[in-house]
């Protein structure tokens, strides 16, 4: 299936991660779920790409397919210079250790039977310690994510709070000093005060280790805070790519604008609430033809049903896949 175009890619530059025409489909009894349909993205070293979208837009499927968990239905994923798709299992595991994943629910991401000191170095257990000293490495790793080694070293996940567990997950993922970190909704199960701590921590880790990050989330303000560039997805397709600094004021795609208008704020008090009829996201089993957002779009015309919009550069660095902007 054709994607939303490649205008937003930066082929001339060194890239930490390059994804071409990524397709993720799941066969089900009633047909095929089109989770991701031709996603293109690239990530420069040290850059953070935010992927923004609602449930069912394919953002998590994309993140997992990039990790080859499971390998995508089609397309290519290049980590630095290494092509991951189509690799044999063992070399792929080795190559993939340069890329790590942080998940939404930190408690279930950790083995409940193991202690923190073992959890954080599991990667090193597998890939070798090099010349590191185990005890000092564990302690410095825990301190680097803001945990008191003395207090948590011998604890198990259930003895820690959600925020502390997420710190352990981050420690675990940066233990191998990866090039790319993929964060899938890492703060959405946390309280706001803890969310701020984790966002600050990720930012610090990125600076210290020179990480490139893909940050997947549904919260517009959170994505803007951590990203350099934002990609908005809807039903497996890319709607818009833009610098995150422009997100609030310069977004053009009708779906991005809908997302921005939906962010609750104090200004809601000043207008009369209008009861609206429920609008459903179409089923990914049978996505609409042409532009997938057209069923909910105020600008939609016949052209949107007939012809799929491709990403076009509207302003420097801003790419929009819509016929009517």
């Amino acid at each position: 299936m054709a994607g939303s175009g490649t205008a937003h890619l930066r082929p001339g530059q060194p890239r930490a991660l390059a994804v071409d025409d990524l397709v993720v489909e799941f066969p089900v009894r009633r047909g095929t779920v089109h989770a991701v349909s031709g996603l293109n993205l690239d990530l420069l070293p040290g850059e953070t790409l935010g992927i923004l979208g609602e449930s069912g837009c394919g953002k998590s499927s994309a993140g997992r397919a990039i990790m080859q968990l499971p390998p995508p239905t089609g397309g290519s994923v290049r980590l630095g210079e290494v092509e991951l798709t189509g690799m044999k299992a063992q070399p792929m595991r080795k190559a993939r250790s340069r890329m790590q994943l942080v998940l939404q629910d930190p408690v279930s991401a950790l083995n409940p039977r193991r202690k923190v000191k073992d959890l954080v170095v599991e990667g090193l257990e597998i890939w070798g310690w090099g010349d590191r000293d185990r005890a000092t490495f564990v302690d410095s790793l825990l301190s680097s994510v803001g945990l008191d080694p003395e207090a948590v070293r011998d604890r198990r996940p259930h003895e820690l709070s959600g925020g502390q567990c997420q710190r352990v997950c981050i420690a675990r993922s940066i233990a191998l000093e990866p090039d790319v970190l993929i964060c899938d909704e890492p703060v959405s199960s946390l309280d706001v005060s803890v969310q701020a701590q984790i966002l600050n921590l990720l930012e610090k880790a990125r600076e210290r280790l020179g990480l490139s990050m893909v940050f997947i989330a549904h919260d517009v303000a959170v994505v803007k805070n951590i990203s350099d560039r934002v990609m908005v997805m809807y039903l497996g397709k890319t709607c818009e790519v833009l610098p995150s600094a422009d997100l609030e004021n310069a977004a053009l795609h009708p779906y991005t604008r809908l997302l921005l208008a939906s962010v609750p704020s104090e200004a809601d008090a000043d207008r009369e609430a209008e009861p609206t009829t429920a609008v459903e996201m179409p089923s990914p089993l049978d996505p609409p033809s042409g532009c997938r957002f057209r069923t909910r779009c105020v600008l939609a015309t016949d052209r949107c049903a007939a012809e799929e919009p491709l990403l076009r550069e509207m302003n420097p660095g801003q790419f929009v896949a819509c016929h009517h902007v």
């Binding site: 701590q197 600050n200 930012e203 919260d219 303000a221 805070n225 609030e248």
Partner: peptide
């Protein structure tokens, strides 16, 4: 005050360091 300051705002520039509440 601290709770409100710890919420990322859309109007803030990217990479704004958020205020946090220490402890639990």
């Amino acid at each position: 005050d601290a709770l409100l300051a710890s919420i990322p705002q859309l109007s803030d520039q990217p990479h704004t360091v958020l205020r946090t509440i220490e402890g639990n």
